[in-house]
Design a protein around this nucleic acid. Sequence first.
DNA 1: CTGGTGATCCTCT
DNA 2: GAGGATCACCAGT
Length: 201
Amino acid sequence: MLNKDFYKKDTLNVAKELLGKNIVRNINGHKLVGRIVETEAYIGPFDKAAHSYNNRKTQRNEVMFKDAGHAYIYFIYGMYYCFNIVTEDEGKPCAVLIRAIEPIEGIDYMFKLRYKKELKEISKSQFKNLTNGPSKLCIALNLDKSLNGINLFSDTLYVEDAGYNDFDIVETTRINIDYAEEARFYPWRFYIKDNPWVSQK
DNA sequence: CTGGTGATCCTCT
DNA sequence: GAGGATCACCAGT
């Protein structure tokens, strides 16, 4: 299990170092594991794309101001959630958005959570859409508002280093932040090159 | 494969 | 009252 020191660093470094690590989610006796293949950094104080731009603190984003290693899970577009990991020192509202994972373990149960169907009933298109987006992976891992603000140091939800290192990292611009003026162009999105589970667009 | 669009409702101003 | 760190679906190519 990654410890607090791992997250209590420069957000861009954490976003890159999280690639290849495994998210572990225990729910109803099922162990779900997914390899992180795509992340985005949100550096509140200087980042117009962040909820916490200019250190603005609201009821929604207060978790971002907590110490490193907390889960910031917020509701978006009327029906979805996004999962972020808080980084850096307490009071500095920075986080890494987990944009995509590659399913590793507990895949049957992930399908059940996401499509309410058994694996054998799943179409090809549904298979590749299981976890290749920030809200898709939240459905597959059952991450919602009830977990907002928990830390990543219990069996419920944590990240571990499974020793997967053999890949190249692509750095590019973030997605769906057209409103963020110059911050649109910051190369703060990272993903594992050629990994099929990276989100499209 | 691509781009456009509707769904749906919480959050902040 | 407006809009969003998204997704699924549809039509056109």
